[in-house]
Design a protein around this nucleic acid. Structure first.
Length: 351
DNA sequence: AAATTTTCCAACCGCCGCCGC
DNA sequence: GGCGGCGGCGGTTGGAAAATT
């Protein structure tokens, strides 16, 4: 699990894996003296290592406050959210995950999250759906208002009596919530849900009788999702792709991308001194504090301004490429004007 | 059970920015 | 301002462990 042979040396300095004895020397020294200057530490501690190697060993492995074990769903969600804002700034992301090191997060991203997002049709770098994924999904006529109502109800926005996304804030919220939701579904991708749990299948009463948009399952689903406490029942069963709730939800996402948007409202990330133009924007609750500490990983929907704009633009482009249904607005004809009001909200409105 | 392939992650490397001289 | 030392960061490696054939 090391890069170099344990016996390899360079200028009399050892490289490769650390032995328990070396670890103990380093721990003992730092506990007694602190690390001070890493350059001189190995000599003082009686270690034949370079200072850099000592520092890495301490910060990535021996530090007493390091949390070991599997990443929780909340931690994973935080990583994805923060990565969508700041990219590969592992140390900054690590600062938001107590007990986790940048190296650990970087490894976890590269070996787990990146792959998972990609398999779910999400570009891990842009955090937006693959172009081909959007192309793949078509809108069957059967997906009409009851399903939209279900979606809106489930995510706790909009009105169940309306099948129109009221504004782009809602749209973005739906999208990011959806992506966030997808991320956690690796272990349930190939399973159906009990009908009283989240998700729907094409055999559910909801889809069989589209007029029953107020089916009780919606309430359960909303509560489960909003509390971020997805509980999969023991008696779940494997299902075909067409019955897979994620497949259905992807269809719904496509639908919502094609609904008319009249405006977007997002609040700026406000610094305590509130003096400079913020470069982070939030909407639908949640924010990143000055200490970059997520207040709520589920509710947090913060984006850098470029990212924020890129999301809006991507959405519009997708709408342009996919909006060929009758009655759908011609998004090519839509121009957008941004009213940036420092310290208040940002409004994007159709002209 | 053995061989092969894939996954995982600790550790290394090079680069960069900061700071003191 | 230039230089060198140092610490920190992100990308990458390579071998152990796990999974698959």
């Amino acid at each position: 699990m090391t890069k170099s042979n344990s016996s390899s040396e360079n200028n009399g300095l050892k490289k490769g894996p650390w032995t328990p004895a070396e670890d103990q020397k380093l721990i003992d020294y730092i506990q007694q003296h602190g690390h001070g200057k890493w350059r001189i530490l190995p000599k003082n501690a009686g270690l034949k290592r370079c200072g850099k190697s000592c520092r890495l060993r301490w910060t990535n492995y021996l530090r007493p406050d390091i949390k070991r074990g599997k990443f929780s769903l909340e931690e994973e969600e935080t990583i994805i959210q923060l990565h969508s804002v700041m990219g590969n700034k592992w140390s900054t992301i690590a600062a938001n995950l107590p007990g986790r090191t940048d190296n650990e997060i970087k490894n976890y991203w590269n070996t787990h999250i990146k792959k998972r997002l990609f398999n779910l049709g999400i570009d891990p770098m842009t955090h937006t759906p693959h172009h081909e994924v959007l192309q793949h999904y078509t809108i069957p006529n059967s997906f009409s208002s009851p399903h939209l109502n279900y979606l809106y109800s489930r995510f706790g926005i909009g009105s169940s009596s309306s099948n129109v996304v009221n504004n782009q804030s809602q749209l973005l919220s739906l999208l990011t919530t959806f992506l966030s939701f997808q991320n956690r579904n690796q272990d349930i991708m190939n399973h159906n849900f009990h009908q009283n749990q989240i998700g729907i299948s094409t055999s559910s009463p909801l889809l069989q009788n589209q007029s029953q948009c107020s089916h009780p399952m919606q309430l359960n689903s909303i509560q489960n999702f909003q509390s971020n406490q997805i509980q999969v029942q023991e008696n779940r069963q494997p299902c075909a792709t067409s019955n897979n709730p994620l497949h259905v939800e992807s269809q719904l996402m496509k639908i919502k991308l094609e609904n008319q948007i009249s405006s977007i409202v997002a609040a700026p990330f406000s610094h305590q001194n509130n003096t400079s133009t913020p470069n982070l924007w939030q909407y639908e609750g949640g924010y990143i504090s000055d200490q970059q500490q997520p207040q709520s990983t589920l509710a947090m929907q913060s984006f850098s301004l470029p990212k924020f704009n890129s999301i809006v633009n991507n959405l519009l482009e997708n709408q342009i490429s996919s909006s060929n249904n009758e009655g759908m607005p011609n998004f090519n004809q839509i121009s957008w004007q941004r009213h940036l009001l420092e310290g208040t909200d940002i409004h994007l409105k159709r002209n």
